[in-house]
Amino acid sequence: MNQYPIMKIKNLSVEYAKGKPAVKNINAEIMNHTVTAIIGPSGCGKSTLLRAMNRIHELYDNINVTGEILLDEENIFRKSPIIVRRKIGMVFQRPNPFPNMSIYENVLSGYTLNGIKLKKSTKNEIVQTNLESVGLWDEVKESLQKKGTFLSGGQQQRLCIARALALRPQVLLMDEPTSALDPIATKKIEELILQLKNRVTIVVVTHNMQQATRLADSSMFMYLGELIEYLPTYELFNNPKNKKTQDYISGNFS
């Protein structure tokens, strides 16, 4: 597959309070159809960086984002956040299916929330293909009208991935998507991430270094809001250039 940088981050800083940046002057390029992991100790700004990529920070006052993020050479901060968020989907730490909606409605929620009307047959097709792509179809096809919250944690998380995929995003942001799940459910999500990179570029925040080595083509190591190193995952873990990276991956601090 022809690889090119689908997302370019330029001089990105995020401040929660004036003069106290949580993310400092990040520059990075993310290649299409790859999995990129963001690793680093708690509070290093990895989630903050991820949440800048679909402009979720704008929901809160006092958070100040500066710099640029280009998606296909277009600055996402110059476009409507609604369009940006449809192109750049997000999966959260804790599965968050909408409790007032059935499984079926959850998959379609990206459309209904945006007030997009679809034909019944199109709806059925979207629900089936997206549940199939997350491996949930066979498990829930008999109970599509049940509430999404009745599913197990792992199933709920896959439902949330299906919900994000249904809008055909170019990029999927995942914020520690398995940290609330048991090992078996985690394994399923990881397998899914590897399958999905054929159709969507994935950026995943993880505090689990093994997970980064299993999933990611490239990894970013962040520390105190700075991007310390960004290398192919194998390089980062076997041949890190920076002392801080070495200390972190060898477990000297966490």
Binding site: L59, I82, N96, P99, N100, S109, L113, A164, L167
Partner: peptide, 26 residues
């Protein structure tokens, strides 16, 4: 919970959609 609202916003929903379709039903 803010996770629910963020979930809806991350799908491109506007504030009025989030209120009418997520917050109030919840």
């Amino acid at each position: 919970p803010s996770e629910l609202k963020e979930g809806a916003y991350s799908l491109g929903a506007t504030r009025s959609d989030v209120i009418a379709k997520i917050v109030l039903p919840k």
